[in-house]
Amino acid sequence: MPKLVLKFENAVLQEVPVNAKEVSIGRSPDNALVIDNPAVSHYHARVFNEEGRMMLEDFGSLNGTFVNGQRIKMVTLKAGDSVAIGKHTIVISEARDLDGFAAGNGDAKQAAPKLNETVILDTKERRAFMQQVAAGGESSQPAPARLKVPSLVVRKGKTDQKEYSLTDKLTVVGKSAMATVKLTGWFAPRAAAQINRREDQSYYIGAADKRPSVNGQPIDSPTKLSPGDVIQVVGVQLEFVYRD
């Protein structure tokens, strides 16, 4: 007999067998499966049997019900499906397949997962997880403006150009052969500072042979750059801007 397994993070909170009876899901204590969280509606959804198929229906809840990452109104469930409601997950499990959620436990005999065993979410489960996270709160950050080119404008100091586009993941400021922002002063260091582009397209300035300042403040650790920030290092001033 299949079961609904309610989980928060990896803790199993409740297991409800699905038989002929309907399983109601919601925040109200009179539901068969109660999820006590403000993101969950009082009567949020139900699981019921229709001609031998296990159906899930969302009652028009505010924050929605997601199956494998897709927001649904009504859907047929199968073993292994992952239902996200708020920050909780309901895993549809065959009664004997309790660790179906973990893709990394490949032991043929399906032994209980060892404590601390690493698991990997496959793409389907990962999407569900992320969807569940997204359903829990505010929207993620806005997409960066793609058409604008992040640049450094030289305000002061000796460099080989007046302006530099930051097209590489790593930009070195110094005399080094790999420096993009080439310092031409006599006593310029090989590498005064470095700027890294991270995966989210943000730019961070960090120390190299010297410790740069941003807007007059010496940096302690890699510091995120915002448009208009002025970097100062070994007598050179560079303004970070986005160019059209």
Binding site: E9, N10, G104, N116, E117, T118, I120, L121, D122
Partner: peptide, 15 residues
Amino acid sequence: QSGLQNVLLRALGVA
């Protein structure tokens, strides 16, 4: 302190 420290979102050999 999370019990989910072992959950990876990417790894080699999975896809």
